[in-house]
């Protein structure tokens, strides 16, 4: 029973990684950049949810919606102000800018809300469902459920809508997309909006599990989710889900069976191993070229 319980908890943690990893992978797929400020958008989302619940007294769902709105706008604004002017610049300049945006957000949060940790209110009731001695908390169930729902909606959107098709076209060839009449800048904005909105959802799930809110809270989940995206094959949406879930399960198993202290090291060792065997990640696209 322990094994099953660890597995489900791993999937719960992995679901959060997967939702965050989507932001990295979608932005990479379309804008071909690593948005290292993505983790800090999670942090902003967490603060917005915290203040909405604790100070404004909003119920959970409106608080989450407000957090989504704020993060979506923030993501689009970051892209417009920091990344769009660098569209023609080298990948390195964009990367350094993204790291700069990350530090900017962390320090702005410290200035605005101080560096002291705030305790996120308990928003999801403690119990859970038990079956044959196996107990799964509501939070874990909700987290996995949200992840599945996000995956279904996003897959439908990307594969079966006109905008989704246009986004996939942009990820392949921006010039040819422009020739089709696709506004590439708009598609990049939409991508940042979706990724940042998902970051807000992830922030609430994360804070419900680990109820502390502080200015650097996004850093570690951000790095883990980025790892998950690379693990699954960066640029691939199913890859982000698979990578996120696997990473969560590996982390929980490593903590349970090997060592709590070494769990992160084990996670990254597995990543290195996967990349050695399959450099494009588990579901990464091989670059196909045909003349």
């Amino acid at each position: 029973m322990d094994f099953l319980s660890y597995l489900i908890n791993g999937l719960g943690l992995g679901s959060v990684y997967a939702i965050i990893a989507l932001g990295y992978t979608m932005v990479y797929g379309i804008a071909k950049m690593l948005n290292f400020a993505h983790g800090d958008v999670i942090m902003v989302g967490a603060y917005v949810a915290f203040f909405s619940i604790s100070n404004l007294g909003l119920p959970l769902i409106p608080a989450v919606l407000l957090s989504i709105v704020v993060c979506t706008v923030l993501g689009v604004v970051i892209e417009r102000l920091a990344y769009k002017p660098l569209r023609a610049a080298s990948a390195l300049s964009v990367l350094i800018t993204a790291i700069g945006v990350s530090y900017f957000l962390q320090n702005a949060a410290q200035l605005l809300w101080s560096s002291s940790t705030k305790v996120f209110p308990s928003v999801i009731s403690n119990g859970g469902i038990s079956w044959n001695g196996l107990t799964v908390s509501w939070l874990t169930l909700i987290t996995i459920g949200v992840c599945v729902l996000v995956m279904i909606c996003l897959t439908l959107f990307i594969n079966h809508t006109k905008t989704g098709r246009a986004m996939r076209a942009c990820s392949e060839d921006k010039g040819a997309s422009t020739l089709m009449g696709i506004n590439v800048n708009l598609m990049i904005s939409i991508t940042f909006a979706i990724g940042s909105g998902l970051a807000a959802i992830a922030s609430v799930l994360l804070c419900a599990a680990y109820p502390s809110v502080f200015p650097t809270l996004g850093a570690m989940p951000g790095i883990k989710a980025f790892t998950a995206a690379v693990f699954g094959g960066i640029g691939s949406i199913p890859g982000a889900f698979l990578g996120g879930l696997l990473l969560g399960v590996i982390e929980i198993f490593a903590k349970a069976y090997i060592s709590t202290q070494l769990s992160d090291a084990i996670v990254f060792a597995v990543l290195i191993l996967v990349l050695l065997i399959k450099p494009t990640g588990l579901l990464g696209k091989r670059i196909r070229e045909k003349v």
Partner: peptide, 23 residues
């Protein structure tokens, strides 16, 4: 019709044609 064709390799023929009518 650009040099080197530049079709969207990872989309179907039908999807490529639909993208042509995007505007």
């Amino acid at each position: 019709v650009p040099e080197g064709r530049r079709v969207f390799a990872q989309q179907t023929v039908e999807e490529n044609l639909a993208l042509g009518a995007y505007s």
